[in-house]
Structures are given as C-alpha cells and as structure tokens.
Design a protein around this nucleic acid. Structure first.
Length: 369
DNA sequence: AACGGCAGCAACCGCGAGTAC
DNA sequence: AGTACTCGCGGTTGCTGCCGT
C-alpha cells in the first residue's frame, strides 16, 4: 500500500520562508482560517506543502507567540516539567504560555541540557550522573514512592496537556497556576482567585523550592549557572509571595484531603486515573490508586511529620522530583552533605535542609499563610 | 580580511494516532 | 473492518551568524 506523500514534492519550495510568503500565509489565515492545511497552499498562492505552512504558522507566525529570551522562571519550569514528562515537548509547552514546543525543544537541546550536564546532572534522568551506579541495589521505600509520585504526576500533567489541547477556551498556563494560592480547602485567604486544579500547585511549590534551594546554596549547583545568561528578567520580578502553612492537625487533615482530591478530582484527570487503575489490573507491577494515595499520604506526610516538623510547609512537602531524585538517593548524597549517611539519614538530612531553608526564610520575614 | 569551528534556531522528515469514508 | 487521509509530535538536519585564530 505505502504511505502517500503529504503533498506533491515536485515544484514546491523548501527552506527558509520569505517575508512575502509569510504575508501570504498570514493574510489567508486571517481571512479564512487555516482549514485544511493540505488545501491551504494552493488557495493562498504558496508554493509550499501544507505541512510546511502549518509549521510556519504554529512555530512562528501565530500571533500569540512570545519570542525572545526565556526567563529564569520559564527555564525552571521547563526543567521541572522535563523531569516529569521527558521529551514530551507539546505537553510541556501547554504550561508555558506563548512558547511553542519547537522553541522549548530547541532551547532545551541548546541551553538547558548542556547546563544540567555541566552541573553533573543527567539531563535524561535528572539525577546526579554518579547516581546511576547506585540505582541497582539500594532503592529505598522512599525512592520507590517518589518514583510512583513521578509517574502519577506525569500522567496528570499529560492529562492537563490533553485538556489544554482539547479546549481552546480554557487553558491553565503555568505562570498563572504558579501565581495562585493553594486550594480553597487549605487556604482561603484570597477568595477572588479563580479556582484551579489543586494539583497544579505542586509545580508552584516545586518552583519555589528549586529557586530557594539554589539561592541558598543547599544543592551543589555551580554558582555561575544560577544566573541565566539568557534571562532578561530578574527573578525577583516574578517572585511569588512566599506562602507557608503551619501544620496543625486541621491543616494536616486538609492537606490529606487535598492529596486525595488530586486523585479523585473531576475532569480530565479522572480519565488518566482510570487508565492507571486499568493498567494495574493488567500488571502487578503497576501503580494503583491506593499506592498513589499511600505515596502521597505516607511518603510525603510521614516523612514530613515524623521528625516533628510541625511547620513544614506543604509546598516543601510537594517538593520537586528533580531535587529529590537527584539528591536523596543513597551515598551520593554524602558528597553533598559532606557526611557518610545511610538512606534514612540522607532523607532526614534532606528534609532538614528544606526545613532549615524554611526557617531561614521565615526569620527573614517571609509572609506566612 | 579570510577562514574554520561552533552554537543557535528554523525547518524538514518520518512516524503514529485519530478520523472519515 | 479496512483503507486513505490529516494532523501533531519528536528527532534530526542544515542554514546562518558569531567568534576565535
């Protein structure tokens, strides 16, 4: 049978677009919309294949595209989402308003990947490169839980991406998500804020910890990499109000409800939840909802509260997988901490580091919930 | 000034999923 | 149910401009 070519190859122009071609394409889409891409070039008077027109439009001519340098915040978002989603650029792009998947992909390949490598972090796994050696034998329960968390979060983010694609009317760009407070069941200080899916706050928390960790020098990241050479924005310009939560019993309960709500919330996520449950039915190794709930409840909250960290902010409990995967694994942590610690000690040390970070910020007068 | 190497980025290619017939 | 077609995605290529020699 064979695959039919997307268009007649003979006689069609390839390569860079001329400004006249851009104008023709713009004019046509403005008047008629793109409709069928295959039919568009002939109608618009372009000697291009439909695919080329579509790419030119989606990656360059679309009016809602922001061009120019990536902000540090955008960089962090890309890194964090890449840790969860891998090379699913379109899914990542749905969380970066006005950025195309192609642009993000290029930026990752030309800047971020190299920078992570330079920092000793495997850009594929987002672990310290030397951690690959210790992945075989000593997986702690916590590491497994975190792996489950990553799977769960990945599936959920994909669901968001899918929803974003399906609905042109409603989108949840991450910059907006990150500027919203925790869900109403946890914090209801700002009733004017639109209600957004609670689980999206994980990214907000993640971003905060990431930036704080870097600025506090807790994690072994080269100092000259902290400042993005391509950033035009001072991060403080975009800095979100620091919000911490005092974990009394009621907020613990609310936090658990929040965690559960991420599993049971209505909308597009439920599809992925069902899919994952179905997956479990077919495979004993797959994660089930109970596992996810366990992960969220026990791995996050047990670890957080076990040592009496009553003031552990929820945001830090939902810390980013990037840091956890990179720094909580086995003996490699000891090089970071300068001590020889076992896994439990490492985890404890990790959380203590986070707590110390919190305390430092609290004493500096950061606003509290 | 000329040249070569390199980085950045726009564009292309091939594949897979979804859909219409 | 099978086939053809469209579209979107991710990997890759190749052009362009910058920089060092």
């Amino acid at each position: 049978m064979g695959r039919s070519p997307c268009c007649e190859k003979v006689g069609l122009k390839k390569g860079p677009w001329a400004s006249e071609e851009d104008q023709k394409l713009l004019d046509y889409i403005e008047k008629h919309g793109h409709g069928s891409w295959r039919a568009l070039p002939a109608k618009a008077g372009l000697q291009r294949c439909g695919k080329s027109c579509r790419l030119r439009w989606t990656n360059y001519l679309r009016p809602d595209i922001k061009r120019g340098k990536f902000s540090l915040q955008e960089e962090q978002t890309i890194i964090q989402l890449h840790a969860l989603l891998g090379n699913r650029w379109s899914a990542i792009a749905t969380h970066l308003p006005q950025r195309t998947d192609n642009e993000i992909k290029n930026y990752w390949n030309t800047h971020l990947k190299k920078r992570l490598a330079k920092m000793g972090i495997d850009p594929v796994t987002h672990k310290l490169k030397s951690d690959a050696l210790c992945s075989g034998s000593g997986h702690s329960k916590g590491a497994n839980s975190l792996s489950h968390m990553a799977q769960w979060e990945s599936a959920r983010l994909e669901a968001e991406a899918r929803l974003g694609r399906e609905s042109k009317l409603v989108s949840y760009p991450i910059q907006q998500q990150l500027s919203t407070p925790f869900p109403a069941q946890l914090i209801s200080k700002n009733p004017t804020q639109p209600a957004l899916p609670p689980c999206l706050d994980v990214l907000k928390a993640w971003q905060r910890v990431w930036s704080k960790s870097m600025s506090a020098g807790i994690f072994p990241i080269a100092g000259d990499d902290l400042e993005s050479p391509t950033s035009t924005l001072n991060f403080s310009e975009n800095a979100l109000p620091i919000q911490t939560i005092a974990f009394n019993e009621s907020t613990k309960t609310a936090a658990l409800d929040f965690a559960k709500s991420s599993v049971t919330c209505e909308g597009g996520f439920t599809k992925e939840v069902r899919q994952m449950a179905e997956l479990k039915e077919r495979s004993d190794d797959a994660m089930v909802l109970q596992d996810m709930t366990y992960t969220m409840e026990s791995a996050w909250f047990e670890d957080s509260f076990r040592d009496g960290n009553e003031n552990m902010p929820l945001s830090y409990i939902m810390e980013g997988f990037t840091n956890i995967l990179a720094y909580s694994c086995d003996g490699q942590n000891s090089s970071m901490a300068g001590e020889n610690l076992d896994n439990g000690e490492n985890n404890k040390n990790y959380w203590n580091s986070i707590l110390n970070l919190l305390n430092a910020s609290s004493s500096a007068g950061s606003p509290v919930f």
